[in-house]
Design a protein around this nucleic acid. Structure first.
Lengths: 226, 226
DNA sequence: AACACAAATGACCAAATCGGTCAATTGGAT
DNA sequence: ATCCAATTGACCGATTTGGTCATTTGTGTT
């Protein structure tokens, strides 16, 4: 079971754990693995591949330098691992998209909510892969292009697959309407992330989040739909 | 004359040059000054104050290390100069806001267009000041708070000053509508910046930009206004 | 308590990079 | 030809880099 719906019809996040092969790291407690992965991703997002400091990573992850280089042979290996990990997270994220839901607003709502849950586990995956595409370091550039680019292409295709565009009113430029909806979702998402850590219960936050989001969709539906 | 309008009523960008006191730097040709300022801003945005490398800056600005430290006594002095410079750019940007224009869409349109022109001259000023507020380095933190925070406060106040909200339809949540408009402007602006460098003539691009923007405002006006 | 083995540590390495200096060179004006 | 300001990049000591490894710590077995 990849996902399920509760009595309100809201998508429940319950994916399988992402695992990239790394015999040594995989023996650690999941909590610790997450700590290391997130610390490393954070540093790579902040400084880029070359300038990212392994010293900063071990400080943030609260492990020793020796341990880091026990888990990963080199900084480059660590980076490659994180790229593969991030790609895996996004791939699983795609799998969650309910393609039988043809209403654009409901589709986007589900996607936004799932992004929220992913953020709770891996706060910077999306930023990381976005930043990776911009990487300049020759040492990793080709590898990134090979592994990350296809993921993005598949994503933009999937998100809009089987959407029912007949609901749109005459005369509206649908492409522009979709862009507005995307920018709104992105902006609202960013706003949500600033508040998310002030909430104890993620589910409680999710409810409030969805409730507030309805306000925005109402405004846009008024313009988009017949 | 800070600004003027052409026959189409579009705002023409013709501000006074921003000048922060620095006797040595000011003797340079404006082109070269801009090159140095933009190179430095870019590096500080990318790496933050402490990790930013003066070596990278001189490489990007195509000047020697000796020159940089002839223009500025230290990396910190350079940073302070850039903050003051950025603040000045934003302050002048505020002055351009036509407060007699009470229509929200026209107000936002002007602001978006001006941001575009500023970006042509100083591609990363807005990013720079936004990043500065997040700076952690104790060496510059207080100075930033003192100089940058007030600018932001004044900005959000000015942008919405004297707007005529009576044009909005009954039942719409105006705060949310404004957020949507802002996110749309921001998203559209980002998209524009990716195309701007492919255009020779900035004025020509500005025209196309405005024309396309109209499509988005039409969609939103349909929902926002009576 | 004694042992065995795995996991984690941080002092340490050579190499690179850091912010900053300055003697030497260049360029333009007279 | 002379002068002086502007520019350069080799160079400084200090710090930080990615990466190593002898040593310590933790855990389970006997």
């Amino acid at each position: 079971m990849l996902y399920s719906n509760d009595q309100n019809g809201h998508l429940i996040y319950g994916r399988k754990e992402v695992t990239i092969i790394n015999p040594i790291l995989n023996n650690l407690k999941l909590e610790k693995q997450k700590l290391i992965i997130n610390a490393a991703i954070k540093e790579f997002v902040k400084r880029g591949f070359e300038k990212a400091s392994t010293n900063e990573i071990v400080k943030e992850a609260r492990i020793s330098k020796g341990s880091l280089f026990n888990y990963f042979h080199s900084k480059k290996d660590l980076y490659i691992y994180l790229i593969e990990y991030g790609v895996q997270v996004i791939e699983d994220f795609y799998e969650q998209i309910d393609l039988s839901e043809t209403d654009l607003f409901k589709r986007i709502e589900n996607i936004g909510l799932q992004k929220l849950y992913i953020h709770k586990k891996f706060p910077h995956v999306f930023d990381f892969l976005a930043a990776a595409i911009q990487e300049e370091s020759a040492e990793v550039k080709d590898m990134i292009k090979e592994k990350v680019d296809p993921v993005y292409d598949r994503g933009t295709e999937l998100i809009y697959k089987h959407i029912d565009y007949s609901k749109f009113r005459e005369g509206i430029e649908i492409e522009k309407a979709i862009e507005i909806l995307n920018w709104t979702m992105f902006g609202f998402g960013e706003k949500g992330l600033h508040q998310i850590n002030t909430f104890e219960d993620l589910h409680e936050f999710g409810e409030k989040y969805l409730e507030e989001w309805k306000g925005y969709t109402e405004i846009l539906k008024y313009s988009f739909y017949k």
